[in-house]
Design a protein around this nucleic acid. Sequence first.
DNA 1: GCATTATACCTAGAGTTAATAGGTAATAGA
DNA 2: TCTATTACCTATTAACTCTAGGTATAATGC
Lengths: 112, 112
Amino acid sequence: MPTTTSQFLNGVPELLVLRLLRDKEMYGYELVEAIRAASNDNLSFAEGVIYPVLHSLERDGALSTRRQTVNGRSRVYYSVTPTGKDRFNDLLAHWQQLQSTIATIVKAPHHA
Amino acid sequence: MPTTTSQFLNGVPELLVLRLLRDKEMYGYELVEAIRAASNDNLSFAEGVIYPVLHSLERDGALSTRRQTVNGRSRVYYSVTPTGKDRFNDLLAHWQQLQSTIATIVKAPHHA
DNA sequence: GCATTATACCTAGAGTTAATAGGTAATAGA
DNA sequence: TCTATTACCTATTAACTCTAGGTATAATGC
């Protein structure tokens, strides 16, 4: 019973989190907005989705954190570790593989 | 709390089932093999995944069934109803939208 | 003839993930 | 002052997938 990702599906929030944090460190609340913005409002994961993802990625050593107080509000900045970069590459390869497999099947003229 | 598909993710087995059955009617066991074959072994959903999907699609009126005994073994052939065609189109549009959104984000040079 | 494999159906339970719905606290703005 | 925004968080529910079974017949191998 591995703690790892499901065999095929999902993992989209995780993928996006790693992708955006790879560009620059961000704090959770900022990330939620960033995903919405980067997707032109097509995708919107609530805080209740993103925070648990951040925590589990940190537990796995894929993210490192830095705490900072700005305007009296405490922020937790996340950045991607080398482990996290590997994880992202794996997830991306996996996603692209799935995506291309599905595209092929869907577009095929006819199936025996 | 709708019984419908999750807002974003999953639904891949359902999508493939509808896609393959759109080409020709099949029975469950055949479908399991067909998905494996159509994906060049990239995807393989066990019977325990496919049968429940078939049943729920039938419950929703997306599939109709026909029973036939061949070589002493009973088969349940499924075919796509008009409702099922609509469902497939929705699922596909949804999938493509998701896929293209993710592709855009992943490929973007940098995120503000 | 007997045992194993393949065909064909099925369900139950576990595991993973996401979605909802909360709840705390400080600041900014009306 | 009251509300909205910022910023964090967790718990519960719901959904779906995955594993692991279980039944039964036919075909194949020994």
